[in-house]
Nucleic acid binder design. Structure first.
Length: 990
RNA sequence: GCCGAAGUGGCGGAACUGGUAGACGCGCUGGACUCAAAAUCCAGUGAUGGCGACAUCGUGUGGGUUCGAGUCCCACCUUCGGUACCA
């Protein structure tokens, strides 16, 4: 009987579905286990072979735990709001809901094809009003709460209002952006709008004008983690800093708890580090410097105080200048008339610089002098105040005291502008210390002289606080999360504004506030969101208006794991009963790319819900497993035309100049180029960082085109036939077809045809790179079980690896061999009820032990090799015994559920193998009578000897020394020592 | 630059707490079956030397600790991720 996966797999998938095998209930006497995958965004290109990697791993764990007697929650859903569907809608007019539904359907088919054990009755879609009703509800809870530092938790805003009415805000300890103090009387006298403005400085979800990342191309603002390398993460469009009125979430209130919480979760060290760095805690001092009254052209009264943050208050005697961020509010007030022009010019320069420019040249310093001076509170010296780009508006107070002797950036600045440098730390006794290390003895520092840095910090902090010129302070890099998007396809804010512009929460019974229908999804005029077009929806009969921004992608994904616990609840986001049963996620599987986005936000929301008493745990995810990306191999055709200029020795140095008239370059961008010239191949040691398209460097010496070629067209030796390339060009497959194929391409002649050499490059799978492998194709050919096993066999699940199908035949062979254990040559089922012998049981239990232990440590690749060893051994023993084969079927069921189910039923069972008990290994079967000892001399293996197990150390030692091979090596040498590890090895030292 | 992870045959990768390096799979070589091929099965397969038993070398590089190091320590090199003027 031949193993034909297609004959059995579909049958069992239907059977599982019809019998509701994977449905899980919320009450069970069994212990609970929650295995969760990061739910996907259903993109238009469907799943590729990289997506299921993590899903297969988590499915194995879910099935394994189920068979071990746990009540396992293993759900799946879709992160269904998002930009691509909306961009697609703008281009085609297809409503995002329609395209999203189509994509979801396709994802579902692809997922079903692989035989996952998801409980689909709990499916969630973030764009479903029944779901986002609760996203809106949680948002309103954030809106209605503030963070009270004295209780160290979120508290209702009403309590705060009551306190304001009683005594103003002077004694309020809260996470706030409120700076001014007010009395109870003042509070009562505020207008509703003024009160609203004040409360916005306390609310955990608040609306305020802040500097945000604005992306013109996407027509929306973006959160910090959505901006990478100075461009938008989606699309790579340029972004700019802009003050805008936006909703934000006060995640900074939870900075400390988010940091501390990392200690209690089982995340990889790398992941914890990444989140820790993102939070960026630093201890230091907030200090005030007087700016003596100076005439201000803009009417500033003078006598301002400049507030700075520093982690090195000890170096204050080395502070030779101050630097403000260009956007700092004091800049206009303190600039002297004589410096005004210079400052204006500099501000203008800063304005023209994109974020990318700023990042590109961090070594280059720039700045301008305001003409104003601050006073060093310790020695009364006047310190000039400058402004410079390198001081960021968002960090600390947007102002620093610059200590060039002790800070690299300040040093560069001082050197460039000839500012004095005063050494304050003697590092001579720490020759290896860098400039920033907190090591050394204070000098030139008055009362600090002679102290070690750390002592000096403590000493001056005390002094600063005693003098009332500052305070100890902890600063975080973490920024509040911008929560508004000027987009259509997201959750509408359940917020209405009265004619004064005061924000009001909608009442719970009005939720969900559904998205209105639109037929044009482009942004409305004036930087407004598309929803502004839905005028009937925006304008309420009483003259009030709705918020037209929508929530960002991370809104729905911040709490979805809770919804799975009770997915159809219309009264609550999930019942307390369900939440208290399932508690938290035991295993969360997903990619590292969500380290600082999704994971931080959902941990933040969870802590807020914990404060509200709505969830029982502080952390949502106990264990995080990051699956590596499966990359694709893209075949690139690189075309570069170089205009050689006489003195470009820098770029052309490795080449023979005479050769360079017509050259074509193939190579990986962002790595060294290989150049084919008439005389062969040379290497150009120059790096180019841009991708496809024509690029001119500032001095204009080359243009380049990089095309990724559809893999199907490529020959085995990585070449592409000329006619195929020409077809691609003619069919306008590429955007830049105007190249001269005759002049600039080095053709290779093969079988009378011309070919061009392509360069393979491993990179992320994506439609645009034509390197996507669809799991459906693999499943259709080899079967889902084979696909699942193969993805596991590729290597450790956490490692990134390129997809290639080299080893898949080996996995298929293994499945066939296993299948053949159950059938004789005539295709008859041949399992016997004869008792198993010792050897067979040893093989079986060795495998059970290995697999059980390896699943627990997520080492799925070694599990598969364990199965292979087991099957090979049983095969060579001709084992046909039920007492061995039945446990084997159970054991492999989590990995290859279809074949396991088929064999399980053939073994006579009626119920699903998923419901069977996982085999437990028995140590007694693993015991051997004989042990093979390696005998080493001075640590070098010289012989192997088979000895009975259980021999004592002196016996082993004696036997070893009597071996012929050992005697030969010991001739003329005195044995100094014999080391025997029973059951392991023997080492003789001479 | 800083932080993190990793470097093992022709390839993917094993080796859990220091104890037989290269499990398992791919590929390759030889053989069986076949008119032949594919498929399948059997054997071999780190490198070098030797007919051979065997010997020497071998886990990025250089040092160290240890009876014994892929594993621990120090220095360095390379690759991949993260991050970027964070005061």
């Amino acid at each position: 009987m031949e193993y034909k996966p297609n004959d059995i797999e579909k049958k069992w998938r239907e059977w599982w579905k019809n019998n509701d095998v994977y449905r899980v209930e919320n009450d069970s006497p069994k212990p609970k286990y929650y295995v969760l995958d990061m739910f996907p965004y259903p993109s238009g290109s469907g799943l590729h072979v990289g997506h299921p990697l993590g899903y297969i791993g988590s499915d194995i764990v879910a099935r394994f735990k189920r068979m071990q007697g746990y009540n396992v929650l293993h759900p799946m859903g879709y992160d269904a709001f998002g930009l691509p569907a909306e961009q697609y809608a703008i281009q085609t007019g297809v409503h995002p809901a329609v395209s999203t539904a189509q994509n979801i359907q396709r994802y579902r088919e692809q997922l079903d094809n692989i035989g996952f054990s998801f409980d689909w009755s709990r499916e969630v879609q973030t764009s479903d009003p029944n779901y986002y009703k609760w996203t809106q509800w949680i948002f309103l809870q954030l809106f209605k709460h503030y963070y009270d530092r004295s209780f160290d938790k979120a508290m209702p805003i009403e309590g705060l209002v009551a306190q304001f009415e009683k005594e103003g805000n002077a004694n309020v300890e809260a996470a706030t952006s409120q700076e001014a103090f007010f009395t109870a009387e003042a509070w009562k006298a505020f207008s509703p709008k003024e009160k609203d403005d004040v409360l916005m400085n306390y609310r955990l979800a608040y609306r305020k004008t802040t500097y945000v990342w604005w992306c013109e191309a996407l027509g929306t603002v973006l959160a910090n983690d959505e901006v990478k390398d100075g461009v938008s993460e989606r699309g790579g469009y340029s972004v700019e800093r802009k003050p805008m009125l936006q909703w934000s979430l006060r995640i900074t209130a939870y900075a400390e708890r988010l940091l501390n919480g990392l200690q209690e979760v089982d995340f990889s060290e790398a992941m914890k580090k990444m989140q820790g760095n993102w939070i960026g805690r630093s201890e230091g001092a907030q200090m005030f410097f007087e700016i003596p009254s100076s005439p201000s052209p803009l009417g500033g009264a003078g006598g301002e105080r400049l507030e700075i943050f520093t982690t090195r208050p000890d170096t204050i005697f080395g502070a030779t200048f101050m630097v403000l961020a260009p956007e700092h509010v004091l800049v206009k007030q303190i600039t002297t008339p004589s410096q005004r022009q210079e400052i204006e010019a500099y501000l203008q320069y800063v304005n023209t610089r994109s974020e990318r420019d700023r990042m590109a040249e961090t070594k280059e310093v720039s700045g301008a002098f305001t003409g104003a001076y601050a006073v060093n509170p310790f020695n009364g010296e006047k310190i000039p105040i400058w402004i410079a780009e390198y001081v960021l508006k968002d960090y600390g107070t947007g102002a620093i005291m610059a200590v060039p002797a002790d800070d690299e950036r300040d040093m560069r600045f001082a050197k460039k502008f000839n500012l004095p440098i005063v050494e304050v730390i003697d590092k001579s006794m720490y020759p290896n210390a860098t400039i920033e290390d907190k090591l050394g003895k204070m000098i030139n520092s008055d009362f600090l002289n002679g102290m070690e840095v750390l002592d000096a910090i403590e000493a001056i902090l005390q002094k600063i606080e005693a003098m009332g010129i500052g305070k100890r302070r902890i600063n975080y890099k973490l920024r509040d999360a911008i929560y508004s998007r000027q987009r259509y396809w997201g959750e509408p804010f359940p917020i209405v504004y009265d004619p004064d512009g005061v924000a009001h929460a909608m009442s719970d019974d009005e939720l969900p506030l559904e998205l209105p229908e639109l037929d044009d999804f482009k942004p409305a005029s004036g930087g407004k969101a598309p929803l502004a077009r839905a005028e009937d929806w925006v304008h309420l009969p009483n003259g009030w208006t709705r918020e037209t921004d929508t929530m960002p992608g991370f809104a729905g994904s911040s709490w979805y794991f809770l919804r799975y616990m009770d997915a159809h609840n219309n009264e609550e986001f999930a019942s307390q009963k369900a939440i208290n049963y399932w508690q938290d996620v035991d295993l969360y599987v997903g990619g590292t790319e969500h380290a600082v986005g999704h994971l931080m936000y959902s941990r933040f929301w969870h802590k807020f819900l914990y404060d509200k008493g709505l969830v029982p745990t502080q952390e949502p995810y106990k264990k995080l497993l990051n699956q590596g990306m499966i990359q694709g191999v893209s075949m690139y055709f690189y075309y570069i035309e170089i205009q050689v200029r006489p003195n470009d020795s820098e770029i052309l140095s490795p080449m023979d100049r005479d050769d360079v008239d017509n050259i074509v370059i193939y190579g990986a961008f962002d790595s060294d180029f290989k150049i084919f010239t008439k005389s062969g191949l040379v290497k150009l040691n120059h790096r180019i960082f841009e991708f496809a398209g024509i690029q001119y460097l500032s001095n204009g010496y080359y243009k380049s085109i990089a095309w990724s070629i559809p893999v199907g067209l490529v020959e085995n030796d990585d070449t592409l036939e000329r006619s195929k390339l020409e077809n691609l060009v003619e069919s306008k497959f590429y955007e830049f077809p105007n190249i001269d194929l005759n002049r600039n391409v080095a053709w290779i002649e093969k079988n009378g045809k011309q070919y061009v050499q392509l360069v393979p490059q491993v990179e992320k799978m994506s439609k645009s790179k034509h390197n996507v492998i669809n799991p459906d194709d693999v499943v259709a050919f080899y079967g889902a079980d084979c696909f699942r096993l193969y993805e596991m066999v590729l290597g450790p699940i956490e490692q990134a690896k390129p997809w290639d199908t080299k080893g898949i035949d080996g996995v298929f062979k293994f499945l066939r061999k296993m299948w053949e254990l159950f059938f004789d040559n005539n295709g008859k089922f041949k399992v016997s009820d004869e008792a198993a012998n010792k050897d067979e049981l040893k093989v079986l239990h060795t495998c059970i032990k290995k697999v059980t232990e390896d699943i627990e440590r997520f080492s799925f690749n070694t599990c598969v090799s364990g199965f292979m060893i087991c099957v090979n051994d049983l095969r060579s023993m001709n084992c046909t015994k039920r007492s061995v084969l039945e446990p084997l079927v159970k054991m492999i069921a989590p990995f290859a559920p279809h074949i396991a189910e088929e064999l399980w039923h053939r073994l006579g069972h009626e119920d699903s193998v998923c419901k069977a008990d996982y085999p437990v290994f028995d140590e007694s079967y693993l015991f051997s009578d004989m042990v093979t000892y390696p005998v080493s001399i001075n640590g070098k293996k010289r012989d192997l000897v088979e000895l009975p197990a259980g021999m004592s150390v002196p016996e082993l030692e004696k036997l070893a020394l009597e071996l012929d091979s050992v005697k030969k090596w010991l001739e003329g040498m005195a044995v100094k020592k014999v080391i025997v590890v029973p059951g392991r090895m023997i080492n003789i030292v001479v």
